[in-house]
Amino acid sequence: MVLQYQVPDMTCGHCVKTITGAVTAAVPGAAVEADVANHRVTVTGTDDKFAVENAIRDAGYSPTPA
């Protein structure tokens, strides 16, 4: 399954690193791809939308399903 989120407050490489770390810690085995220019995060390897979205929020960002 592919989960995609718009994260308008993801603006730099540090944001990507923080979000990636948060998601992979919350959902081991998940793979995270981030497109800073389009503010989009794509997560594969899980179908747990709740855990992924909460991990991004807990890291300080504002995800909305894309």
Results as ranks from 00 to 15, higher is better:
I56Q: 05
A51H: 07
T20Q: 10
H39C: 07
Q4K: 14
F50P: 02
V52F: 06
N54M: 13
T24K: 10
Q6I: 13
T64R: 15
Q6K: 15
N38Q: 12
I19D: 10
N54G: 07
R57P: 00
P63W: 13
V27N: 05
V52K: 06
N54D: 14
D35L: 04
D9Y: 08
Y61E: 04
T20C: 05
E53I: 09
V23F: 08
V52N: 02
F50V: 13
P8Q: 08
A22I: 10
A34C: 00
A66K: 14
E33P: 00
N54Y: 03
H14E: 05
R40G: 01
E33K: 12
G21V: 09
T64A: 15
P63V: 09
I56D: 03
V43K: 08
P65L: 15
Q4R: 15
A55W: 05
D47K: 07
A37K: 09
T18S: 14
K49D: 14
Q6W: 12
V23P: 04
A59H: 06
G29P: 01
K49T: 13
R40C: 01
D47Q: 11
G60A: 11
G29M: 06
T64P: 03
V41I: 14
T42V: 07
A51R: 10
G45Q: 01
K17T: 14
V23M: 08
R57G: 01
G13P: 06
V27R: 07
C15D: 03
K49L: 14
K17Q: 13
D48Q: 09
A66D: 15
T11M: 01
A66T: 14
H39K: 14
T24S: 06
K49N: 09
A34S: 04
T11Q: 01
A66F: 15
V43F: 01
T20P: 00
I19C: 02
D35I: 07
V36N: 00
C15M: 02
V23Q: 04
I56W: 09
T64S: 15
L3I: 08
T46G: 05
P28Y: 11
A37G: 05
V41T: 05
T20F: 06
A26W: 05
A26L: 03
A25Q: 14
M10R: 02
T20N: 12
A22K: 07
D9C: 02
R57F: 04
H14D: 02
N54R: 15
Y5F: 15
V16H: 09
D58H: 13
A34W: 02
A66E: 13
P65H: 12
C12Y: 00
V52E: 05
T42H: 03
A37Q: 06
A31W: 03
G60F: 12
D35K: 08
T18E: 10
A34T: 04
V36M: 00
T64L: 12
A51N: 05
C12K: 01
A26R: 03
A66W: 15
T64M: 13
G60L: 13
V23G: 05
D48R: 07
A25I: 10
K49H: 11
E33I: 00
A51K: 10
V32T: 01
P65E: 15
T24Y: 09
E33F: 05
V7S: 08
E53A: 10
V32N: 03
A26N: 04
A26V: 03
E53P: 03
A30Y: 01
Y5I: 07
E33S: 03
T46S: 11
R40N: 06
V41W: 09
V7K: 10
L3M: 12
G13Y: 09
D58L: 12
M10V: 03
